[in-house]
Design a protein around this nucleic acid. Structure first.
Length: 385
DNA sequence: AGGCCTACG
DNA sequence: CGTA
DNA sequence: GCCT
């Protein structure tokens, strides 16, 4: 069986052989910390290929026709398959620099560069960082440390459902006709996530501009807004109606940290042993596209990250199209410097690979393996649900 | 030899 | 630089 | 590091 190069298109129950997958994730992370972006991506793809398989790899021969697995990754696999461990991976895991950078980058707002900076200063623990007078934490990092325990703890499906109610109430107070959709990992059928993503849109044109700020204000008045970074949309039809592509930048969105009350969660909070607070902090993302862009936003925000990468590269290289969260553009039908946008005026768009390309149209759940659903169709559009 | 998703704050 |  |  031949898998397409764009590996995360494949079905993927992916329960077994976590150790192989984890081995590549460690190698990817290590590459990232050493600023080797190429190898990092290659190991991520290798991990993604393994995750996408519906069976457990038990011999090297079974990986013969798989993409993204080359000399190095196969050598690691042979080691793991034979003795259940890899010398290279264990060396990385025992490395002080790797351990420290892994710890630092687990903080919301701290990436590889900042982690590296702190490491070079000789800092090795959170205590070291917080005690260093020479370190200025930005707003995001302050929140990251303040809510570290809560933010790094998984969010349950029950907590996501409860948050849906909280957001829905705040949205409905602003625009009763608005549509709210749960996206991200929970839309892919996951039981746990690290945050909760929503798309909110209103049928009243132009209203989406004030929608999010008003929702944020509502949450603030409730006293449950712990962190908020709001990004206004740069979309402006009045300015450049004919230059759609360049005018299209980004939808309004916000990264939030919300206070979730235990009393509002069916079955209680997913919290630490002996936590008597009765609430926890949760990362929440809201994105608010104009209604005619709902489907593209949903496609872009349903993920996973590797799936989005593969899908966009596939659109560009194989289909000669450009895909982003706003639309799909046909490069071969470009008028001067601009592209024609596909799938406007409400008809469902399809980025459907033909059978000979070895790729099929799939649903959100297929992006990590569960029941089949139609990913992008009329049913996914507001009013169709 | 050159690319690796794309776009924001 | 960081977020998704 | 893997692919084109």
């Amino acid at each position: 069986m031949n898998l397409p190069y764009y590996s995360s298109f494949s079905p993927s129950p992916g329960l077994a052989f976590l150790s192989l997958e984890d081995a590549f994730e460690v190698l990817a992370e290590s590459s990232e910390f050493r600023e080797m972006e190429g190898p990092c991506l290659a190991f991520r793809r290798a991990a993604s290929v393994l995750k996408s398989l519906p069976w457990a790899v038990q011999s090297l021969g079974a990986t013969r026709d798989l993409p993204c697995l080359g000399e190095h990754t196969k050598a690691v696999m042979e080691e793991v398959l034979q003795c259940g461990r890899s010398f290279e991976v264990e060396k990385i895991l025992s490395d002080e620099r790797y351990q420290t950078l892994k710890l630092f980058t687990s903080v919301f707002g701290v990436g590889p560069k900042t982690a590296e900076k702190w490491y070079r200063r000789g800092l090795r623990s959170f205590t070291d960082v917080l005690a260093d007078r020479g370190i200025h934490l930005n707003r995001m990092q302050q929140s990251g440390f303040l809510h570290y325990g809560d933010i790094t703890r998984a969010v349950s499906k029950a907590e996501a459902r409860s948050l849906r109610n909280v957001i829905d109430e705040a949205v409905r107070a602003v625009s009763p006709a608005a549509t709210l959709a749960l996206t991200g990992g929970f839309r892919r059928g996951k039981e746990f996530g690290h945050d909760v993503d929503f798309i909110v849109t209103t049928p009243e044109p132009g209203r989406e501009k004030s929608l999010l700020p008003n929702v944020i204000n509502g949450l603030k008045k409730q006293g449950i807004l712990l962190f908020c970074e709001y990004q206004a949309s740069t979309f402006d039809t009045a300015k450049l109606p004919s230059y759609r592509f360049e005018a299209m930048d980004h939808f309004a969105k916000c990264f939030l940290i919300l206070r979730l009350e235990a009393s509002q969660v069916e079955g209680g909070l997913h919290c630490a042993e002996g936590d008597g607070r009765g609430w926890r902090a949760v990362r929440v993302d809201l994105v608010s596209p104009p209604m005619d862009r709902f489907a593209f936003a949903l496609l872009g925000w349903t993920g996973s990250r590797q799936f989005e990468r593969d899908l966009r590269r596939f659109a560009r290289v194989t289909q000669r199209m450009i895909l982003d969260n706003h639309g799909l553009y046909d490069k071969t039908k470009a008028a001067s410097a601009h592209f024609q946008c596909i799938g406007q005026s409400g008809e469902p768009f399809e980025l459907r690979a033909e059978p000979e390309s070895g790729v099929r149209r799939i649903g959100a759940a297929d992006r990590q393996g569960r029941h089949p659903v139609t990913a992008v169709s009329r049913q996914a559009l507001p009013g169709g649900q």
